[in-house]
Measured scan of single mutants.
Amino acid sequence: QVALSRTQVCGILREELFQGDAFHQSDTHIFIIMGASGDLAKKKIYPTIWWLFRDGLLPENTFIVGYARSRLTVADIRKQSEPFFKATPEEKLKLEDFFARNSYVAGQYDDAASYQRLNSHMNALHLGSQANRLFYLALPPTVYEAVTKNIHESCMSQIGWNRIIVEKPFGRDLQSSDRLSNHISSLFREDQIYRIDHYLGKEMVQNLMVLRFANRIFGPIWNRDNIACVILTFKEPFGTEGRGGYFDEFGIIRDVMQNHLLQMLCLVAMEKPASTNSDDVRDEKVKVLKCISEVQANNVVLGQYVGNPDGEGEATKGYLDDPTVPRGSTTATFAAVVLYVENERWDGVPFILRCGKALNERKAEVRLQFHDVAGDIFHQQCKRNELVIRVQPNEAVYTKMMTKKPGMFFNPEESELDLTYGNRYKNVKLPDAYERLILDVFCGSQMHFVRSDELREAWRIFTPLLHQIELEKPKPIPYIYGSRGPTEADELMKRVGFQYEGTYKWVNPHKL
Results as ranks from 00 to 15, higher is better:
residue 439 L to A: 11
residue 284 E to L: 08
residue 419 L to M: 12
residue 342 E to M: 15
residue 256 V to I: 13
residue 320 L to I: 09
residue 341 V to G: 02
residue 506 W to R: 01
residue 469 I to E: 08
residue 400 K to A: 03
residue 314 E to L: 08
residue 489 A to N: 06
residue 278 S to E: 09
residue 300 V to H: 12
residue 366 V to I: 14
residue 285 K to E: 00
residue 437 L to F: 03
residue 445 S to G: 14
residue 305 Y to F: 11
residue 356 G to W: 03
residue 438 I to A: 06
residue 343 N to C: 11
residue 346 W to E: 03
residue 377 I to W: 10
residue 427 N to I: 07
residue 262 L to P: 04
residue 330 T to Y: 10
residue 425 Y to I: 06
residue 410 F to H: 15
residue 317 K to S: 13
residue 434 Y to C: 00
residue 448 H to V: 01
residue 405 K to I: 13
residue 445 S to E: 12
residue 257 M to F: 09
residue 352 I to G: 04
residue 477 I to E: 14
residue 415 S to P: 02
residue 281 V to Q: 04
residue 455 L to F: 01
residue 337 V to D: 06
residue 485 G to S: 04
residue 271 E to I: 02
residue 429 K to Y: 11
residue 321 D to Y: 05
residue 476 P to V: 09
residue 282 R to G: 00
residue 379 H to F: 10
residue 430 L to W: 08
residue 356 G to F: 02
residue 448 H to P: 08
residue 360 N to D: 15
residue 421 Y to H: 04
residue 350 P to S: 00
residue 330 T to W: 09
residue 376 D to F: 07
residue 452 S to N: 14
residue 261 L to G: 06
residue 340 Y to R: 11
residue 399 T to Y: 14
residue 262 L to T: 13
residue 405 K to H: 10
residue 482 G to H: 07
residue 472 E to W: 10
residue 375 G to W: 08
residue 282 R to M: 00
residue 361 E to L: 04
residue 402 M to L: 12
residue 272 K to H: 06
residue 279 D to N: 14
residue 475 K to Y: 11
residue 287 K to S: 09
residue 500 Y to K: 06
residue 478 P to A: 10
residue 346 W to F: 07
residue 487 T to S: 13
residue 503 T to Q: 14
residue 375 G to Y: 11
residue 460 R to T: 08
residue 427 N to L: 08
residue 463 T to C: 06
residue 468 Q to A: 11
residue 269 A to D: 05
residue 387 L to N: 02
residue 453 D to G: 00
residue 363 K to V: 05
residue 454 E to K: 00
residue 426 K to C: 10
residue 450 V to Q: 06
residue 385 N to M: 01
residue 322 D to A: 03
residue 352 I to Y: 06
residue 325 V to M: 06
residue 405 K to Q: 15
residue 277 N to R: 13
residue 274 A to K: 15
residue 442 F to H: 08
residue 326 P to Q: 06
residue 449 F to R: 03
residue 330 T to H: 13
residue 396 A to Y: 05
residue 334 F to C: 06
residue 335 A to N: 03
residue 445 S to R: 12
residue 269 A to F: 04
residue 281 V to C: 09
residue 310 D to E: 14
residue 259 N to G: 00
residue 265 L to Y: 04
residue 487 T to W: 13
residue 387 L to Y: 06
residue 448 H to I: 01
residue 446 Q to K: 00
residue 364 A to H: 04
residue 327 R to S: 13
residue 365 E to V: 04
residue 476 P to T: 11
residue 257 M to A: 11
residue 369 Q to N: 05
residue 446 Q to N: 03
residue 276 T to M: 06
residue 420 T to P: 07
residue 504 Y to I: 04
residue 427 N to G: 13
residue 288 V to S: 08
residue 368 L to D: 02
residue 359 L to R: 01
residue 338 V to L: 10
residue 392 Q to F: 06
residue 328 G to W: 13
residue 379 H to L: 09
residue 324 T to N: 08
residue 458 A to P: 05
residue 304 Q to P: 01
residue 386 E to R: 03
residue 408 M to N: 04
residue 293 S to E: 12
residue 375 G to F: 08
residue 371 H to F: 07
residue 323 P to S: 12
residue 490 D to R: 06
residue 417 L to I: 01
residue 344 E to M: 07
residue 297 A to Y: 12
residue 265 L to R: 02
residue 288 V to L: 10
residue 441 V to D: 04
residue 352 I to A: 01
residue 284 E to S: 09
residue 402 M to R: 00
residue 352 I to T: 05
residue 495 R to I: 14
residue 437 L to T: 01
residue 410 F to N: 15
residue 337 V to E: 07
residue 431 P to Y: 10
residue 321 D to R: 06
residue 431 P to C: 08
residue 484 R to L: 00
residue 466 L to W: 00
residue 292 I to N: 04
residue 395 E to W: 03
residue 468 Q to K: 14
residue 337 V to F: 07
residue 347 D to Q: 13
residue 454 E to C: 01
residue 319 Y to C: 02
residue 395 E to D: 15
residue 339 L to W: 03
residue 497 G to E: 08
residue 368 L to H: 02
residue 398 Y to V: 00
residue 397 V to E: 00
residue 409 F to D: 11
residue 329 S to L: 02
residue 312 E to D: 15
residue 279 D to W: 09
residue 506 W to P: 05
residue 275 S to A: 06
residue 310 D to V: 13
residue 451 R to Y: 03
residue 361 E to T: 08
residue 424 R to H: 03
residue 355 C to F: 00
residue 339 L to C: 15
residue 362 R to L: 09
residue 348 G to V: 01
residue 471 L to P: 06
residue 308 N to A: 11
residue 289 L to S: 07
residue 452 S to K: 11
residue 421 Y to L: 11
residue 390 R to S: 12
residue 404 K to E: 01
residue 491 E to Q: 10
residue 424 R to T: 07
residue 456 R to F: 07
residue 324 T to V: 07
residue 419 L to H: 04
residue 449 F to M: 05
residue 383 K to H: 14
residue 349 V to K: 00
residue 276 T to A: 14
residue 460 R to H: 07
residue 444 G to V: 00
residue 287 K to C: 08
residue 287 K to H: 09
residue 476 P to W: 01
residue 338 V to W: 06
residue 419 L to R: 05
residue 451 R to Q: 03
residue 396 A to R: 02
residue 345 R to L: 09
residue 458 A to F: 03
residue 254 R to C: 06
residue 279 D to L: 12
residue 343 N to S: 13
residue 370 F to P: 02
residue 411 N to H: 11
residue 290 K to I: 01
residue 465 L to F: 14
residue 450 V to E: 04
residue 375 G to Q: 13
residue 480 I to K: 14
residue 393 P to F: 01
residue 394 N to T: 08
residue 472 E to L: 14
residue 424 R to P: 04
residue 278 S to W: 07
residue 503 T to F: 09
residue 331 T to N: 11
residue 337 V to L: 11
residue 284 E to C: 12
residue 321 D to K: 07
residue 454 E to T: 02
residue 443 C to K: 14
residue 386 E to P: 02
residue 376 D to N: 13
residue 347 D to Y: 07
residue 274 A to R: 13
residue 370 F to N: 02
residue 442 F to V: 14
residue 385 N to V: 01
residue 500 Y to H: 14
residue 338 V to R: 09
residue 278 S to A: 15
residue 267 L to G: 06
residue 302 L to N: 06
residue 332 A to C: 11
residue 286 V to H: 08
residue 400 K to P: 02
residue 432 D to T: 09
residue 274 A to F: 10
residue 298 N to H: 14
residue 435 E to L: 08
residue 498 F to S: 06
residue 349 V to R: 01
residue 493 M to E: 12
residue 354 R to M: 01
residue 311 G to S: 10
residue 304 Q to N: 03
residue 338 V to I: 11
residue 318 G to E: 06
residue 471 L to S: 14
residue 439 L to M: 11
residue 336 A to Y: 01
residue 388 V to F: 02
residue 276 T to E: 08
residue 315 A to H: 10
residue 346 W to S: 04
residue 278 S to L: 02
residue 397 V to S: 02
residue 369 Q to G: 05
residue 320 L to P: 06
residue 479 Y to I: 04
residue 489 A to T: 08
residue 388 V to K: 03
residue 413 E to F: 11
residue 336 A to H: 08
residue 464 P to G: 12
residue 295 V to D: 08
residue 363 K to H: 03
residue 404 K to Y: 02
residue 388 V to L: 05
residue 308 N to C: 12
residue 298 N to V: 13
residue 390 R to D: 03
residue 335 A to I: 05
residue 505 K to D: 15
residue 444 G to T: 06
residue 342 E to D: 15
residue 458 A to V: 02
residue 456 R to Q: 11
residue 381 Q to R: 10
residue 409 F to M: 13
residue 390 R to V: 08
residue 422 G to F: 10
residue 278 S to T: 08
residue 482 G to T: 04
residue 385 N to I: 03
residue 275 S to Y: 03
residue 430 L to H: 08
residue 472 E to Y: 13
residue 289 L to R: 00
residue 322 D to E: 09
residue 409 F to A: 15
residue 449 F to Q: 03
residue 349 V to S: 03
residue 439 L to P: 00
residue 289 L to V: 10
residue 472 E to F: 11
